[in-house]
Amino acid sequence: MRNLIQFSVIFFSLFTLQVQATAITDSTKQFETKVLGHIDLMNTHTAKLMNLSCDTQKDKLVKNWKISYSHYLAISYMDLEVITKNSLNYSFSFWPDKKNLIAQKMRLLLSAADFTDAYIDNSSAPVKGYQAIEYLLFDDSQKQINCQALKAITQNMLNNITLITSQIDQFRIIKAEFLTTQREIEGASIAFNQISNHLSAIIKKVESITNDKIHEKLYFSDAWRSKQALYFHKHNVNHAIKYIQIMSVLLSKQNQKILQTQITKLNKQLTQLPNNYFDIYTQNKETLLFKHLATLKKLSKTLSNVILADLSITLGFNNSDGD
């Protein structure tokens, strides 16, 4: 009987440990699957861009550019080894463009007699990716879409997405050893770090356009040519929320509730914000934008606090600048 009790205690302890362990691994895998889903959708909508007519389907071009870019934004602030190993960090987006290099380099590109996706591949970052396409679709200087440039830039993006997809098993978003019971907390930590990076980046983007001299710093704004900075910002925040919701099941009920309250507040603010940054002024919504920024910062801080309290995971404990 005594042996049976001992066995039961040991079995129960192991079972409890296994349940907890599985929950961590499951959430981390779900996080990874979510990120992979965004890469798939980038691919789908970038491929659609390639097949549309520049002359008669501008609306569809714009629509697919927006969708593809919004999915790219879901992965763009993360440390993905498949991107860094292939030096693709600046191949999809060039931001911040403090010196308006996109316009300078695109003008040079468009003055070239002929170019292909290979030509784009060997060119500098400002003529690659979503902002380069945005220039072709929206810049005031573009009376009509330069289709050769659009197709070359889009094909270059597709080539890079194909490269990412082909190597994603080799360079996992969460390393295989972090999905084992022994090291799964490191996997969860990577996922939370990636979410934290995402939140920090979108906070920085909003901060860069919420100051008194916004009109002098127009280039700091994301997607300013298309006047869609806040449209993409809303997608960015929604991505962050989805990621947090996947990983927050690992937290205590009380902390899940705290996070959810802040997420609800964020969602309400998002519905009240316009898509066009300049409508913030015409609609007198500066105060709302500042409140929204404060809510984002609070969510970021809360996330750090609750994962430390519940999972003993520290975010950026050793990466403070200057030390």
Binding site: I190, F317, N318, N319
Partner: peptide, 23 residues
């Protein structure tokens, strides 16, 4: 990359490298 979460502290001793993480 991404193998040692928040790695920072390092030291060496008799041809052995040691490192620590914030985790």
């Amino acid at each position: 990359q991404l193998s040692f979460v928040d790695v920072a502290g390092i030291t060496q001793f008799q041809n052995t490298a040691f490192w620590s993480t914030g985790l």
